[in-house]
Simulated scan of single mutants.
Amino acid sequence: MSPAEFWSIGELAEHAGVTVKTVRFYSDRGLLPEAGRSSGGHRRYGPEALERLRLIRSLRTLDLPVPEVGRLLEQDEVLGDALEDAVARQLRELGSQLTALRWREAALRLLHDCPPQERADRLALIGGLSTPPDTTALARFWRRMLPPRMPAGLTASILDAAVPQPPADPTPGQVLAFARLHALSLGGCSGRGHGPNEKARTNRDHRPTVLYQGLEGAYALASAELSAGRAPHRGEALDGFVDAHAASWSTRDTPAFRTRLSALLTITDDPVIGRYWELAGELTGPGETTLGAAHTWLRTALDEQLTSEGPTAPESWMPLPPALVAATAEAGPAG
């Protein structure tokens, strides 16, 4: 091209339908190469600059940051994998922003529609959340509750099941449930523990890893029963539940053990855990089964069996582990 065919910065801006300031901005950042300079030192651009400028504007329309645009323009194939990755990142970021906006809207509706006397308490609860909210506090709560030295894989599996994920498009009620769940998790437990009580959790005769590995299958079966709308009853789910507890005490499932187990579960009921599962149920909504609901189903099935058959005195059967007997001595037989 002859010098006469080069465009000035103003001419390029006119061809592209942008301002001179825009052309200068991208030129100064090295995104828009110059074809040369005039004898007076003014910038000159070739027709290829127009195509590059249009590409830059298209990428910026996607709200890609200028540094990201620069990295894309350095690729041999601008419209190849690099652009696909950049668009995917942008979609994830946009999704996070939209979720945050939906949570903010639901929180505002919660405050707008609640009775005036409740507004201060709800505002304090909401103020403790990030937007979008995260579940770090809930995971820490369960790490404190679970027995120490559990296998990492088993702990991760329990956390996945026990920590409900915040919905992407919550109702005001779900915002309130999560805010209360978050506050409860920060407050910690009542000290009575989940499952075996503190004495059982620290007793060397008790094997919590065996317990929680067995409970995983029992809870899955109970969840299926719940989803099908079946009332608590004897069957595979309850047998798996009792077997898990029996194996953790190195004993076997007998009528005497079921009596002791019912008593143990009664004295280790934790109101904080109960409230946690109540709020988790409000957060997940109908159609979703929590571990707490599965545990209650199994507890009810066990107690109804003992009620219908009558409790069995442990002394009539094989000796039970002393630690289990000691843990239930103050409660006596259940049923």
Rank of each mutant, 00 (worst) to 15 (best):
D169H: 10
I9N: 09
E51I: 12
A231V: 14
K21G: 11
E330K: 03
A152I: 06
L176T: 10
A86V: 02
G240L: 08
F141H: 09
P232R: 05
I126Q: 02
N203H: 15
L83C: 02
G195K: 11
A244M: 05
F178G: 00
E278N: 07
W277Q: 06
L184C: 01
D121H: 13
S248G: 08
G229I: 09
L181R: 04
R230C: 06
L291N: 10
G17Y: 03
R92P: 06
G287F: 11
L265R: 15
R252K: 03
E236L: 08
L111P: 12
F257W: 06
S185F: 04
S39A: 15
A293P: 02
P47E: 04
G335A: 14
L91P: 07
A231C: 08
T254K: 03
A222K: 00
A162C: 14
R57W: 03
E278V: 12
R180A: 11
E11F: 10
E278I: 07
W317G: 07
P167C: 11
M145A: 13
R192T: 03
A13V: 05
H42A: 09
G229W: 12
F178C: 06
P148V: 05
D81E: 14
N203I: 12
R201P: 05
A106C: 11
T266L: 14
R57G: 04
T202I: 10
A263K: 00
R144A: 14
F25L: 12
L98R: 14
G128I: 01
I126N: 05
A179H: 00
E11I: 04
V242Y: 08
A331D: 06
R102L: 14
E216L: 08
L101F: 12
D113K: 05
G40V: 07
A179R: 01
A244F: 04
